[in-house]
Computed example of a mutant assay.
Amino acid sequence: MQLAATSGLASLVLFGIAVALLALLAGGFWMNSRIKYREPPRPRPEEQPKLPPEGPVREIRENRESQEVPVTPKGGRPLTPYELSNMDSRPSASKERPRWSRGSSGSFGGGGLGAH
Results as ranks from 00 to 15, higher is better:
M1D: 11
M1F: 06
T6D: 08
G8W: 05
F15W: 15
G16K: 02
I17C: 13
I17D: 06
A20H: 00
L21Y: 04
L24W: 08
L25E: 12
L25W: 10
A26F: 08
G28V: 10
G28L: 10
W30Y: 06
S33A: 13
S33H: 15
R34M: 06
Y37N: 13
R38W: 01
E39S: 07
P40G: 08
P40Q: 07
P41A: 06
P41L: 02
R42M: 13
R42K: 12
R42L: 14
P43Y: 11
P43W: 08
R44Y: 10
P45Y: 03
Q48M: 05
K50F: 13
K50R: 11
L51H: 07
E54H: 02
G55S: 04
P56K: 04
R58E: 08
R58A: 02
I60V: 05
E62L: 14
R64M: 11
R64A: 15
S66Y: 14
Q67V: 12
Q67H: 13
V69A: 01
P73G: 01
K74M: 06
L79S: 07
P81M: 08
Y82N: 02
E83D: 00
S85R: 15
S85T: 05
S89F: 04
S89N: 09
R90N: 06
S92T: 07
A93M: 06
S94W: 12
K95D: 07
E96P: 13
E96F: 10
R97I: 08
W100G: 13
S101E: 09
R102L: 11
R102I: 09
S104H: 05
S105K: 09
S107E: 07
G111P: 13
G111C: 04
L113P: 12
L113Y: 06
G114V: 11
H116I: 14
